[in-house]
């Protein structure tokens, strides 16, 4: 198994550190450093997220993902580097800046004696131009739970309430921290379509997730963070050279499972087809999955 060499140069697809901050980007980061005591959680991270895109940040626990996002959200002070979120330094962002961003945390907000509708109304009252709370409940599919107390909701309903609280202020930029953890597959599908409809409304989103299928499904671009640095930024289909990686063709011949690696799977299959009178038995063509390239990048044995 080959390992990506330690990122001494700029990571593939990433922003070059010498490039100035992009004032038009939703998020622009140069040389972000964050230390906890002796350990360095983020070691010089550069990143630009365009307005209107969904950007997924992937990375193992402890890679600096949460720290980076919390610096962007204004929850943590950085030790070095430059950061602009919607053109403002989060370290100094006031109420007006906070009104333009929405944050969906892994917990919080919904654990309450208030009903869903009351919670959303209270949340909406903090913003200049909020969405209609009833409409937001409809959007996240909680209309029939409008009168139910936050505390009585199931895990999946609670996450949808968290998302509702995050978007009721009509944010231009939404942070989603592992939003579908604990969802069943059906709930996850519904959530994905919710995120797509938010994108259609022009909301920029920064998503962190452990689910690679989720990143592939939703993100315009993904960034992989490992050991406090951004290792690569690419569209999901191209990450880790996936687009150019050899395909694996597999079929059954004389009762034996056969496989072949090839850079020209179409020609290979055409040639293969001539050896059989009809269908090629159990024919499959596979590219490396996002998970394969991701695991290789973060340096874990696949």
């Amino acid at each position: 198994m080959t390992r990506t060499p330690a990122a001494t140069a700029t990571a593939p697809g990433a922003v070059h550190p010498a490039t100035p901050l992009d004032p038009d980007a939703a998020i622009s980061v140069r040389g972000l450093v964050k230390r906890y005591g002796d350990s360095t959680a983020v070691a010089g991270l550069d990143l630009d997220i365009r307005r209107g895109e969904i950007f997924a940040l992937l990375g193992p626990n402890g890679a600096g993902k949460t720290t980076t996002v919390e610096v962007l959200e204004g929850y943590r002070q950085r030790d070095g580097g430059d950061v602009r979120v919607l053109g403002v330094d989060p370290a100094t962002g006031g109420r007006r800046w906070k009104a333009d961003i929405g944050i969906v945390l892994q917990s919080g907000g919904g654990d309450s004696q208030l009903t869903c509708l009351e919670l959303l109304r209270a949340q909406a009252s903090y913003y200049a131009d909020p969405r209609d709370p009833a409409e937001v409940l409809e959007l996240v599919g909680l209309t029939e739970k409008a009168g139910a107390r936050g505390r009585t909701l199931s895990g999946g309903q609670r996450r949808r309430l968290d998302v509702a609280l995050g978007i009721v202020g009509r944010p231009r930029l939404l942070f989603l921290d592992e939003p579908t953890t604990g969802f069943d597959p059906e709930a996850r599908r519904q959530f994905w379509s919710l995120i797509r409809s938010l994108r259609d409304l022009g909301t920029t989103m920064l998503l962190t997730t452990h689910y690679l299928d989720e990143a592939e499904e939703l993100a315009d671009r993904v960034g992989v963070i490992a050991r406090g640095r951004l290792v690569e930024v690419a569209v999901p289909a191209e990450l880790g050279g996936r687009g150019q990686a050899p395909a694996v063709v597999s079929w059954t011949e004389d009762g034996v499972r056969r496989t072949a690696e090839t850079v020209g799977p179409t020609a290979f299959v055409r040639e293969l087809a001539t050896r059989f009178p009809g269908e090629v038995p159990d024919l499959a063509v596979a590219r490396p999955t996002l998970e394969d390239v991701y695991l290789r990048m973060i340096g874990e044995p696949a």
Binding site: Y75, I103, L105, S107, G109, D111, S112
Partner: peptide, 14 residues
């Protein structure tokens, strides 16, 4: 501990 305070401090609530 349940994240309510963190949630509130991320909103424009004074």
């Amino acid at each position: 501990s349940d994240g309510t305070l963190k949630h509130l401090s991320g909103t424009p609530m004074p």
